[in-house]
Amino acid sequence: MSHRVIYVGGLGRSGTTLLERLLGELPGVVALGEVVHLWARGIDRDEPCGCGLPFLRCPFWRRVGERAFGGWSPELARRVLALRRRVDRTRRIPVLARRTTRPGRTPRPGSAPPARRPDRLREYAEAYRRLYRAAGEVTGAEVIVDSSKHASLAFCLASAGEPVSVVHMVRDARAVAHSWSRWVPRPEDGSPMTRWRPAATAVHWLAQNLAFHLLARRGVPVTRVRYEDLVDAPRQTLGRLARRLGLPAAQPSFLADDAAVLSVGHTVSGNPMRFAVGTVPLRRDDAWRTGMARRDRWLVTALTWPLLLRYGYRLAGQGASA
């Protein structure tokens, strides 16, 4: 059975989990969560699936693992994690970019042929390809959504020949920085999620977003969505995105102007809202406007202003987020 892969990318705290959950409600689509973390958090640590069951006891993931790899094993997890450390790194994006072209795209005249891809890159991408294919076969879905977010994984998949369509999720850098500075418990075990200082977040925000621009320049189809548009006008924004991706674009019954009705999902990792079921309110989180120190706000603005303007955000004033 053929399948399509939609890769949701962007820096964490930008709304990627929300977008993935909404896409997963469309007919013929299955959302898997942040697959990049499956090997450590799922196989190794047996953290809960989005359905609430431990990963290794979830019937969905057990069937996927059996079909893709003959079952989950510690050896599989160690191998994929070792490959990830070698090839799936942000610092390797320039190398991966030189090997990334859209399938069927003709190289520019006079350009050097791409270097032979190392076996470890092909092996790493093949693990994802087998997992995506198995998820499609288990569910009958034609479209697989992976919200792993990291631009480096998108480059790995594309450079290894996986025909991915990328949705690049962006959010105001100041809102993202404020979110990363807050204490947020992980629902899996209550431990605190990673926290970054505003300046560090700004650097990560720039690096990830610029990497997706580079991915688009290398011929990979990339569609940009703003978090603010998604929560302010969810039906219109999701409808436009669905049409761009070739998904059913009819007005979805699960989505209203200010709320979504979500079913149980089998997302392997992600934001705590991956566990949400039932009616979920959709409202913009603008806590940064009053909760972020002025010096931090201006520091992040100074570091990120070119892309802020490109994405339609204002640099100052009450309308700082369009």
Rank of each mutant, 00 (worst) to 15 (best):
Y124C: 10
V5A: 09
L81K: 11
T106M: 12
W298E: 13
P187C: 10
E123V: 06
Q208W: 09
R117T: 10
V222F: 10
L56M: 00
V166L: 02
P74I: 00
V220G: 10
A216K: 08
S179P: 12
R195F: 02
T267N: 10
E228K: 02
L11G: 02
P187F: 08
D119R: 13
G28A: 02
A173K: 03
H37F: 11
T223L: 15
A259S: 05
D172L: 00
A200T: 11
H213M: 14
E142G: 12
E162D: 13
G65Q: 04
S147L: 11
R99T: 07
G24A: 12
V277C: 10
V261F: 09
P252Q: 03
H213S: 11
R79M: 13
F69R: 09
A320W: 14
P109G: 01
R120D: 13
M273E: 08
G104A: 08
L307H: 05
V29G: 15
V8R: 06
A134P: 01
Y128V: 03
H150S: 13
T139Y: 02
G278I: 06
M1Q: 04
L315W: 00
G317Y: 03
L38I: 00
L238T: 07
R117V: 09
A211Y: 13
F275H: 03
L255P: 05
G52P: 12
G12F: 04
L255I: 13
R240W: 14
E142D: 01
A302Y: 08
A293D: 13
G70C: 14
S147V: 12
A287V: 09
D46I: 04
R197F: 11
P192H: 00
V225I: 14
A320Y: 01
L157M: 11
D257N: 00
L11T: 15
R85E: 14
R105F: 07
W205H: 02
A112S: 13
P103L: 12
P118T: 10
L96R: 04
V264C: 06
S2E: 15
F69S: 09
Y128M: 06
A287K: 09
R78E: 15
A200S: 15
S179Q: 06
C49P: 00
P94R: 07
R171M: 02
N271C: 00
R122N: 08
E228L: 04
A242S: 05
H3Q: 05
C49H: 11
A211K: 10
D229S: 11
L241G: 08
Y313R: 05
V145M: 15
A154D: 03
D257E: 09
R244L: 12
R45N: 09
V64L: 11
S147A: 13
G246V: 15
A97W: 02
P94G: 00
P74R: 15
L76D: 09
R86I: 11
R63H: 09
G50E: 01
C58P: 09
E126V: 05
E123S: 08
L315M: 00
A200M: 14
P187Q: 11
V261H: 03
R91P: 13
R226C: 00
H266S: 05
V277Q: 05
V164K: 03
A250V: 14
T223H: 15
A199R: 04
